[in-house]
Design a protein around this nucleic acid. Structure first.
Lengths: 143, 143
DNA sequence: ATCAACCTTACCACCATGGCAGGGTCAAGC
DNA sequence: GCTTGACCCTGCCATGGTGGTAAGGTTGAT
């Protein structure tokens, strides 16, 4: 299978397949006499594996570890689980960070009249020193 | 105030201050005879404004609009509010995407023994065609 | 033989940020 | 005045994952 077919079959662009090979994430496939890369079913599985890992938000270093675990038939599932749990923690942190931004903005937007007048608590908040801007309607202290 | 002091006062690195000037996000300040940039209080406020906007996750194009709204004393607060709401929607989309990744991984990790044996549903899921992996305890069909 | 569709490598661009190099400036201490 | 150290200036390089483009080779079908 040539690279174009491999790309179509795996959903990874030919460009990225070459890149992944370049950085050593996937093995270099055999070449034809004229230099064309030649992929087998197994290679397509690897590309699908990488693509799905990316879709789950794994970083390239994590993916490197994941693929080596995948190839290692004697791996311990605990190693995979630990990596997954690490990644879940990372995702949760990013979610919390984005959620904090959204919460702040929601509060500010709620306070903004949104009419033709120039007064705007959103701009005010950006102008002034950092104040506690998180959900002021809730004074119970629970997050 | 020289750029180093402005950086310390605003929390924006000197490097980034020059960059923001370069791309026209902030105005070029006056220079001393020897070429040193000279900042006033007002400029520091602008830098703080930009920094807080970045902390809230606004993109550079959005910040460009925000700063021009900030400078425009005759702006309509509706314009600011619309920009904020757009950004909230973007943030929500990113949160939902990350949350979906985390949910999938949590489900897989829960199914993984995490012991010394190699069998691992996480790797299996990455190997196989996309299946419905979202919260399998719910069979109602609602997404 | 020709032509289109594919393949190859090797660049450039993005964007926000940091780092480094090479050289100028300023202020304090002597 | 001279030295020294802390600052400032510009300009270049690197990042990371992806897309684009260009110039040239291969293949297969007509």
């Amino acid at each position: 299978m040539k690279i174009g077919e491999a790309a179509a079959a795996s959903g990874v662009s030919a460009k990225m397949i070459r890149y992944y090979e370049d950085i050593g994430l996937i093995d270099a496939p055999p070449r034809s006499a004229s230099g064309y890369r030649h992929y087998r079913e197994e290679d397509i599985h690897m590309l699908l594996f990488v693509r799905r890992g990316r879709e789950l938000g794994f970083s390239m270093p994590q993916l490197r570890t994941l693929t080596s675990l995948w190839r290692d038939k004697t791996r311990a599932s605990a190693d995979v689980k630990r990596l997954a749990n690490d990644h879940i923690a990372t995702l949760n942190a990013r979610i919390a960070s984005l959620q904090a931004m959204a919460d702040t903005l929601k509060t500010l937007a709620r306070q903004c009249q949104g009419d033709a007048r120039p007064d705007c608590p959103i701009l005010d908040a950006l102008r002034q020193p950092q104040a506690d801007r998180s959900q002021p309607q809730d004074h119970s202290g629970q997050k």
